[in-house]
Design a protein around this nucleic acid. Structure first.
Lengths: 129, 129
DNA sequence: CGGCATCCTTCCGGATACTG
DNA sequence: CAGTATCCGGAAGGATGCCG
């Protein structure tokens, strides 16, 4: 199915190869919002669109929709529509998504634990507060 | 030094808080190129600009410079200029950068190991090859 | 070699308004 | 409620040229 990439790690795929599909996957989850969305879904299991937006201050509905659609297309996230009034839509992680949540959680944890060592960002933040 | 964020995990910082500086740090390393640059530097220790660019097909010199400057400002990367002819500039990971390389390496590994399960991206890739 | 400056195009992404 | 549609400004980012 998956043809090998030019220079292979893991036998077949290599994120350093320009047009290995796994680089697109890396880009997808290396997105600014993806790590946060996946983290929320990992904590709460089934989350509605509006809950998600409330939990992610700063994201617009357009951005959130885009992010969810991309994650859904890559089958990291599943979308369930309930034909009710008012309509209800819930998002959940697929099994694949849950496996991604592990390393992504470590990245978030790393950022929270090491920010104190990054003077530059702390200073920028102090200035605007 | 670092004032606590509104809603704190790890006592003080929380990537889900809109203006917690650690979100900026997360954004920095969740960047498309950052994970790859940090991965290269982690493998090879001291790398010249042109080596780096050659190892990262698809990146322009402008993008690479930007990425390196940002990582340097956040003290994840150190830059050494040798006054020679021709000039030589080498980049290395700081200790902080090396600590970030661990979870970033796991993200890259995850992408390489799970791409086969993502039909959508594989199909897109097949079509253009 | 390793940039920075400049130009120029693309498209990201916010604001707003509207629908099933 | 959970979006889509449209518009639009500004930033991302490629190409080119010059410099120490």
């Amino acid at each position: 199915m998956a043809r090998p990439c030019p220079t292979g790690r893991h036998d077949e795929h290599n994120v350093y190869a320009e047009n290995c599909p796994c680089r697109a996957l890396l880009d997808l989850i290396s997105n600014k919002w993806s790590a946060l969305v996946i983290g929320m879904l990992d904590e709460r299991s089934a989350v509605r669109f509006s809950e998600l937006q409330a939990a992610l201050p700063g994201v617009g509905s357009k951005m959130l929709t885009q992010t969810l659609r991309r994650l859904e297309a890559a089958s990291l996230v599943e979308r369930s529509v309930y034909a009710e009034v008012p309509p209800r839509v819930e998002y959940t992680l697929s099994e694949l998504g849950r496996s991604a949540a592990v390393p992504l959680g470590q990245i978030r944890a790393w950022a929270e634990e090491h920010i104190d060592q990054v003077e530059f960002l702390n200073r920028k933040w102090s200035e605007q507060n």
